[in-house]
């Protein structure tokens, strides 16, 4: 049940510093914890509570609202099949049932080997590319049942590791704001009228 590593603690503090109020960093920090451990470990949530100066209950209160946050371990690969309206019309349900058969699990559960978790999800904004699914939030458009079988096989054999990181990692590129370019968080109570918002009739102070 790990807390943040030293490296992630530094990163977490840097993320908190971008926001006018520390609690705004909560969802990004929960993602960071999930990236570190594959799911949200309890101690990580306690650590986050300390970092943003709120109670662990408030952290869980937010985390439990959002379905991407997994408070129990899930498979290495989270396979999300869309069965919402556009996908339903184009075979999304058949695709889901096919994967249920292949993996021998129902949506919401994980294979015995801990490799796959299957989910029946709502629209993933790929409606014109139906039927579609994501694996750890990487998209596969217009995917046939044969292609889905091939995908499972590739994942088992580790052939997709370069394009699909383990569960918890979203963007593989992080935003980093260089110290010398940083404008800084706009904290209420500490900011007046921005300098470039000078009245229009004051040519002296016109923006450069």
């Amino acid at each position: 049940m790990p807390r943040f590593t030293a490296e992630n603690t530094i990163l977490a503090k840097e993320i908190i510093g971008r926001y006018p109020h520390p609690k705004s960093a909560l969802i990004p920090l929960l993602h960071l914890a999930q990236e570190q451990d594959g799911h949200l470990a309890e101690d990580a949530m306690v650590h986050i509570a300390e970092l943003i100066d709120h109670t662990p209950a408030e952290v869980i209160g937010t985390a439990s609202f959002y379905e991407m946050f997994k408070r129990e371990p899930v498979g290495d690969y989270l396979v999300n099949v869309c069965t919402n309206i556009a996908c339903m019309l184009m075979g999304g349900e058949e695709l889901l049932h096919h994967l249920e058969d292949r993996l021998d699990i129902r949506p919401g559960s994980t294979t015995a080997d801990g490799m796959f978790t299957l989910e029946d999800v709502e629209c993933i904004a790929a409606c014109t590319e139906a039927p579609c699914l994501t694996v750890n939030y990487r998209y596969f458009h217009k995917i046939s049942t044969d292609e889905a079988d091939q995908l499972l096989e590739d994942l088992r054999a580790g052939r997709r590791a370069h394009e699909i990181p383990k569960h918890g990692t979203l963007a593989r590129v992080r935003q980093s704001i260089p110290a010398d370019r940083r404008a800084g968080a706009a904290v209420p109570g500490e900011c007046g009228q921005p300098v470039w918002m000078t009245p229009k009739d004051d040519p002296e102070d016109a923006p450069a």
Partner: peptide
């Protein structure tokens, strides 16, 4: 960020995502 293109306009853009 700060003093965008040498002007007096400064603004950070923070990438945030949901869950």
């Amino acid at each position: 960020g700060k003093d965008i293109l040498g002007s007096s306009f400064s603004c950070d853009i923070v990438l945030h995502w949901g869950a």
